[in-house]
Amino acid sequence: MTGERLDADWTSGPRQAPGEGGLAGLVRHDLRILRTYLSLGVLNLVQYRSDFVLSVVNAVITLATQVLGLSVVFGQTTDLAGWGPYDLLVLIGVHFLIGGVLGLVVRPSMEAMMEGIRLGTFDFTLVKPADSQLLASVQVVRPQALVDVLVGLGVVVFGMTRVQASLSVVDVVLSLLTLLCGLVVVYSFILALSTMAFWFVRLDNVLAIFQSLFGEAGRWPVTIFPGWLRIVLTFAVPVAFAVTVPSEALTGRLTYTSALSAAGLALLFFAASRWFWFFALRRYTGASA
């Protein structure tokens, strides 16, 4: 064919190629990928306008039923294992917030990854010169979930103005840190569940199970459950724990024990899920052509 010529510079290559620049280079690369995926996903909000309206409606209904549930409980008592009504409102807000972040990027990405393993498109994630876990975890952004994030923030702030707890700057920083720990714990848990798709190709229900656990158990303080269930919800399926600790921090009842255990648990879960990820990758065979 005539006239087809490549004239751009095809030889210079990137100024800093993937994999160069040592640890700092790797981190910069990872951060750039994260930023690009998130910002593009959110910028594409317009593609989902009708979905967005639906998620506002959904968030309002969910919030209303949860507040209604709270009012029923507190019609009978003024104190639930040491938590007052507005303390629990803060917890509901934290629950919304964490659920929102998961729904924004983690869950849709994991769903896409499992689908990709089944269809073989996960191959493309693996041939990219970047951290495979990072790529798999941020590949799809569902901006409608921002509604939950915003509702969560609003409820947390509203609840905090009603709670008689005066938070110092240190408390606020601690709250944010425990929130981050909670997110890391839940993220690692979902990642480990989804990684099982490398062996059991059809695993869509795994995330549904997680969702109902997180949705039901996660919106109560882990301290109200009987001992054995508390242990399960802290170590085996750490959803309630992940929500409870930041809520404790935000309502001025954080103990050093729970702060440290949140940090420890976050590290443990992250390291274990990452180890499991690379263990699974070595066994990856892909879908056949």
Binding site: P14, R15, Q16, A17, P18, H29, R32, I33, R35, T36, Y37, L40, G41, L43, N44, Q47, L119, G120, T121, D123, F124, V127, K128, P129, A130, L135, Q139, V140, A289
Partner: peptide
């Protein structure tokens, strides 16, 4: 680069150019 005729790597729901920008970030 690995190109497979039977499989897509571009993201289904976003404009093509946005997928390219993702590649730009990944490949620096």
């Amino acid at each position: 680069a690995l190109i497979m005729g039977q499989r897509n790597q571009l993201q289904w729901d976003i404009p093509v150019l946005d997928s390219y920008k993702l590649n730009q970030a990944v490949f620096r």
